[in-house]
Amino acid sequence: MAPQLVIDTLTLHFGGVTALSGVYQEVNPGDILAVIGPNGAGKTSLLNCISGLYRPSAGRIVFEDREITNLPPHRRAQLGIGRTFQNIELFKHMTVLENLMLGRHIHMSQGLVSGGFYWGRARREEEVHRRRVEEIIDFLEIESIRHKAVGTLAYGLQKRVELGRALALEPRLLLLDEPMAGMNLEEKEDMARFILDVAEEWGTTLILIEHDMGVVMDISDQVAVLDFGRKIAEGTPEEVQKNPLVVKAYLGKQ
């Protein structure tokens, strides 16, 4: 199977600081890849390189046989790469529904004028998108908060809405930056199930950064371990768990 995404010896410098150094990683379609590592290991930098927020200093990124290293973020979104952020990035004063509809905007073709009049094509298009958004609402079980302003929701629910916003884009590759940070156990379990269902039912490839090792071991197919900008290990969760380098990076030298 050809990999869907190839991260080819990526290096990223910030002035004198090396955030990523020669990272190589392949991701197969439909897989869940967890990126783990201590604080400052370069996990978010890696995600930012894939989504286009950062330009790597060296190396290339190939998505579905197409080099995207120098494409701006919105072009990558159009190609099918979606993401969520470590800190929730939603419009707090808008409702859940409006936030999700916004997530559809790259699929909308009607311009300002026809959209403003809300006639014919524009209206039909809106209905198609609304249907798709309603499927996501159903999928994430957030019917009861459909019309609530995002800012009034509990943190765990906001995270869920953010996932919904990313899903509204219908990405083929979804990047999740700490989707379960700050959640209680029950919320984490719910989120883990949604992530598994996204991969299973929609065949979406997922790359996620996560600190909860229990979750990582439970849901990921592959794990990549970063330490000081270098990839020090990769493999199935079981393999990585036993790797002495990984143990050392986490526990420090004896």
């Binding site: 609304r130 309603e134 499927e135 609402i137 159903d138």
Partner: peptide, 8 residues
């Protein structure tokens, strides 16, 4: 019968 699904 009526069931609300997908908001309708």
């Amino acid at each position: 019968l009526r069931e609300k699904e997908f908001g309708v």
